[in-house]
Design a binder for these strands. Structure first.
Lengths: 241, 241, 241, 241
DNA sequence: CATGAATGAGCCTTCATTCAT
DNA sequence: TATGAATGAAGGCTCATTCAT
């Protein structure tokens, strides 16, 4: 009977809850430490090249501890990648919501959000879209599924635009969303193709314009002029070598 | 007897040349054996996951022999990738030449060729565009340079189209070539995104149409109708999930 | 309660210190295990012929552990050699101090100590003075320096003897010390040249006598009769074949 | 019947003999090529560090050919060493004979010859007296035996000197010969102990003087003054560090 | 005789993982 | 919980040796 112990019991229960919470917080903090260290270390070398020992040192924890939070090395990589996927999802959600009701604006906002995260987390991006082949079958499936999920918001906005007759009726909505995702991911993998002064914003504008010109109904071109003709004064600027 | 001696000398010289040639042929055959085995094994696992022992076994040669043809493990990967790059270059050259004088047709032919090779060499494609981060600095530079080279034909065709006033004058030719290359490479990496009955031809048609709609001058749309509206009867077909 | 907290704090600090000490002791023990095994195995085969696997087995530790105590194979050899050098230094110091004030007696004591260690550590001695050529430049320099250091005490005693006018004034003191060192090392390398019943003591006596007869001032011969005419009753004993 | 074949037979026999001789000469030439290359390559690295491939290249023959002249790698080393031993034997014989009838002069001449060869063949010397431990039991025995043989001439001269009452009667002749040999070999192994301007001649003079002072009967000191007090004007010159 | 391509056992080293403390 | 010492399988690479030509 809980009451039997009286106030003391209550206190202890509270203590327990508090202790539990402390543990949780610490666990989350540790996990983040490890994931951040992983991203830091795996930059430019791939996760195969990083040892658990090195990861532990970078994260300032013991090797053993990593194994108490993650099942093994592969789990760490999966966690890094899922973390990135979640960041993308969250950023897209926020920026698309902030973009207002216009579906085309929302589509571009989602693409911009995707690209922004890829730019900020370039290392993790490389990891995600390059190392997936080295993971086990199961892990690979989880990543594919996660990627598909992030396609959703883009696809939805495209659908809405189509429903509002903003797009040419031959537009392939699935392919549009797919291409946007690919081009976003590409920024992390291939940004070295661009001149040094090229940044993610110019990239977003240029690629969004490219795809919008392709799918926007001619009648809408004037309305989305700012998206279709970015940097109007810089026409003809050369981008990739 | 001068003739006899002469003949003998000649014969010996010929022998040497023949022997040399035999060696060369054998060397090329061995190299191919190894590269093919590498592509076979590295499929879906990354080159870090493939041991030289396994490679030797798959190629049906001894470990030591691989080291007499390649400087080390990394060299094998670089060779695989450069091999692929060369196949792409050669396929593009051939198909673009066969496409005739029309620069837009040639551009699409180049893209189609790129995609075809990526489709046929899906494994090598994965290798190429995923493993580059795990190579040494120098090897990475060679790969980047090779990639840039294959951008050339596409860029040239685009330029020609622009010079012939076939494109909208806001088209970013560098970006166009870049996107074509990216989308071609993407087929190898992400074809699993598409339905099972989707094949590389539909992919080429759909992506080419997308980009052409974006860059073709409105006045040219009718002329390139077959490229812009592929599979006219299949409108609305869903492609990506 | 301050005391309790203080005590606890103290206790923990003590624990840490104790833990640290335990680690240190264990590390030293492991190191010794490996060095001893190395000496055992490298006897008569050279360190190139001993694999790290074999060393690990002989030392009863895992291969990996050796690498956590030594930087690599070469480091193990260097450690073995430096260990021997230190034993020699320490034995010479002790025996020379025990030999009293007479510089000639001290010189002989130093030589005897050097020989004793070489006799006891015959295997290590072989390693030391035979394998040096197979080490890297840096390791070789360290060994040479260490050898030079052990020359010091002998040279000093010789100097003192000379200063006390105990030696002929044509004696080359550097060469004397050098020869003593060489002859001591030689015992480990070439003792097989001597009959089976020949032992290190006879060797020391005979060689010391040889060199003393060469450098002692004639006036001192009587005083050091016991050193110059060892085993007076065994005159003419044959030593080397 | 040899005659039956007549002149022709004779001619053929001669041809055969000539051919045989040509083969022999070539074989000797090849052998020398390999041995020289071995000494060149093994300098400062030990024979374990030299591959047969590298040896073949340095000797400008094929790997297979080495195996037709030597049983294996170890045989090459043994041959190198035996070659050195033979050079020493031959040099000692010649120089001792040239030294005339005086046994002390002959002893010193033998020592000088030994040292000279060691100086000229420093690489081979290192090989011989350092690598022996890495050879098989049998090879080691052959080397020991060969070393013993070279002790002979020195021992004989010492004996003769003793018989002529030139030495103190407490002199240990075996040890004397042994020490001479050791000190000769030492020059190859430890010459780095001496100053740069120190050469083999000073070394020979200094060491010979040291040992002679030890064993020469006092009455003979004047007679061998030139050997006992080398470089009379350079008294006190410092030699070893 | 001579060649050198081919072999494959074995080496040094790394590192994911475990477990006693 | 947290640590990090310990393990040992496995990997890249070398090289002594063989043998078809």
């Amino acid at each position: 009977m809980p009451d039997a112990a009286g106030g003391t019991g209550s206190a202890r229960a509270t203590d327990d809850r508090v202790a539990q919470e402390i543990r949780d917080v610490r666990a989350r903090w540790r996990t983040r430490q490890v994931l951040d260290a992983a991203v830091r270390l795996m930059h430019g070398s791939g996760f195969q090249a990083v040892s658990m020992q090195a990861l532990a040192k970078e994260a300032d924890v013991s090797v053993g501890l990593i194994y108490s939070y993650f099942g093994g090395k592969e789990d760490v990589v999966v966690a890094v990648v899922l973390d990135l996927v979640e960041q993308i999802r969250s950023a897209m959600q926020e920026r698309m919501a902030a973009a207002g009701a216009d579906p085309v604006e929302r589509l571009v906002a989602g693409f911009a959000a995707y690209c922004s995260v890829m730019d900020a987390q370039r290392n993790a991006g490389l990891l995600t879209y390059r190392q997936s082949g080295e993971l086990g079958q199961q892990a690979r499936l989880r990543l594919k599924e996660a990627e598909r999920v992030n396609l959703g918001p883009l696809r939805d906005a495209a659908q809405e635009a189509a429903d509002s007759a903003l797009l040419v009726d031959t537009a392939d909505l699935d392919l549009l969303a797919f291409d946007l995702m690919i081009l976003a991911q590409t920024w992390a993998l291939k940004h070295w193709h661009f001149p040094d002064d090229y940044d993610v914003h110019r990239y977003v504008a240029a690629q969004a314009a490219t795809l919008l010109r392709s799918v926007l109904a001619p009648a809408q071109h004037e309305r989305y002029r700012h998206l279709i003709h970015p940097r109007d004064t810089e026409q003809g600027s050369r981008t990739a070598p």
